[in-house]
């Protein structure tokens, strides 16, 4: 249970705390203003990102561009000069292309028919 004396000495300590002058040091104000400046997001002043820069960011920047370039060069090389192993592998996978002459010798027959009328 608090006595009257408890109230008095506590209130005195509270009063001492409240009476302390508080001056904001210049360097604290400077730090707070520097924070305000750095935290400020300028709605109009920020440079707008170009479409290229946006796409560049989406695909992952330079590391991804390097990978894409390597893949492109490899694809071009396989197209120009496919390795033998690749030909065998594709033949097994999708089969060997075969050309079939559906008309055979009949072409000459039709040609003759048209000439003879």
């Amino acid at each position: 249970m608090m006595t009257k004396s408890d109230d008095e000495f506590l209130d005195d300590i509270f009063g001492t705390a409240k009476a302390q002058p508080t001056l904001v040091p210049d360097d604290l104000m400077a730090r707070v203003m520097a924070d305000a400046q750095s935290a400020l997001v300028k709605p109009d002043g920020a440079p707008k990102q170009s479409l290229f820069a946006g796409v560049f960011d989406i695909i992952g920047g330079w590391p991804s561009v390097g990978g894409l370039a390597m893949a492109g060069v490899a694809g071009l090389w396989f197209g120009v000069s496919p390795p033998a192993a690749l030909s065998t592998w594709t033949a097994e996978l999708i089969g060997v292309p075969v050309s079939v002459d559906l008309f055979g010798d009949t072409t000459a027959y039709f040609a003759e028919t048209q000439i003879d009328g």
């Binding site: 705390a17 409240k18 302390q20 604290l28 203003m33 305000a36 400046q37 300028k42 709605p43 002043g45």
Partner: peptide, 25 residues
């Protein structure tokens, strides 16, 4: 928030003394 840094200076002048006093106490 709309980009006026001077507003931050005014707000700091108004609020920082009380904020610092509360923390000090």
């Amino acid at each position: 928030a709309n980009g006026d840094v001077e507003a931050a200076r005014v707000l700091s002048g108004r609020l920082l003394p009380r904020v610092l006093a509360q923390a000090t106490r």
